[in-house]
Design a protein around this nucleic acid. Structure first.
Lengths: 150, 150
DNA sequence: TATTGTTATACTCTATAACTATA
DNA sequence: TATAGTTATAGAGTATAACAATA
């Protein structure tokens, strides 16, 4: 087992990674007139098609109140539209506009390029080990919703 | 070089890691009555000692306005105190109270335990590779303040 | 003139609670 | 009764701009 001190160094690097990735996404999305939260909405609509706001709230783990606000913003800037639900007159169907769909594709392309930028020069063995290790760490974090991080 | 598709998978895992680590820190800090931003203030004060608000703004990459708010909150809850700067009468020195210092130590212990929780069962070789790879990725992100992430 | 910190103002994200229209 | 969505309200984090006190 490695020196315990190295564990702290590894965690520091992970925390810096969190910050840098977050900053990078925020900056990059701002160029498309988006925030991280709004991009999540677009992302879900692309993956799963038109949805009611209740379904969006569920998919994004966010309150109904927040969905209203997020959809308000996205509708005002032309990324999504609201339409009455065909059978349930209480509900609203949220869909991507053409602009929203094009943006979703651009986001996906951008993400692919970003992944390439990060990993493409890495040797096979190193890369595989990295992905596996990420998987192990994610497993722990998922199962231990509780812990004692900084 | 690995299949390009695996790059996307690696990035997905990294993004999930960002979310989980963030959630974990938020939940854990809430138990001490802290938020991530306020914990950063305590962290810097522990690392570098008492500082003026201007120095804090610099260290945290945050606006002067924000420092006022953060210090207000931390002072109201007894983690820090404000005192006049001995030589510059414009400035205010922010210091940890005993409670703040004790909290800072607890945060550091918690972070060590968290690192242990994540890494202690890992084989040497895997762990070393992981740390090295994190370093490489951080290097790229630091140097390319610009990129095209999701 | 420049710097330190505060107040004023505003935007985003988050939440709960009350309310309307429907199921 | 229960669900879908909105409005009301609130708190945290972020920011810029104007201002007072001091350098």
């Amino acid at each position: 087992m490695p020196h315990p001190d190295r564990h702290g160094e590894a965690l520091s690097r992970m925390l810096e990674l969190v910050v840098l990735v977050n900053d990078d996404m925020t900056r990059s999305l701002a160029r498309d007139g988006l925030t991280v939260s709004r991009a999540h909405v677009i992302w879900e609509l692309r993956r799963r098609g038109s949805m009611t706001q209740a379904a969006l709230a569920d998919a994004l783990s966010v309150s109904a109140r927040n969905v209203t606000g997020l959809v308000d913003g996205l509708a005002a800037t032309g990324f999504v539209t609201r339409a009455p639900h065909p059978t349930d007159r209480r509900a609203t169907l949220v869909s991507l506009t053409d602009h929203g769909a094009a943006t979703a594709e651009a986001l996906e392309r951008g993400q692919q390029e970003f992944a390439h930028f990060l990993f493409s020069t890495m040797a096979d063995e190193q890369f595989d080990n990295f992905v596996d290790t990420l998987g192990e760490i994610l497993g722990r974090l998922r199962n231990a919703g509780v812990s004692d991080g900084s």
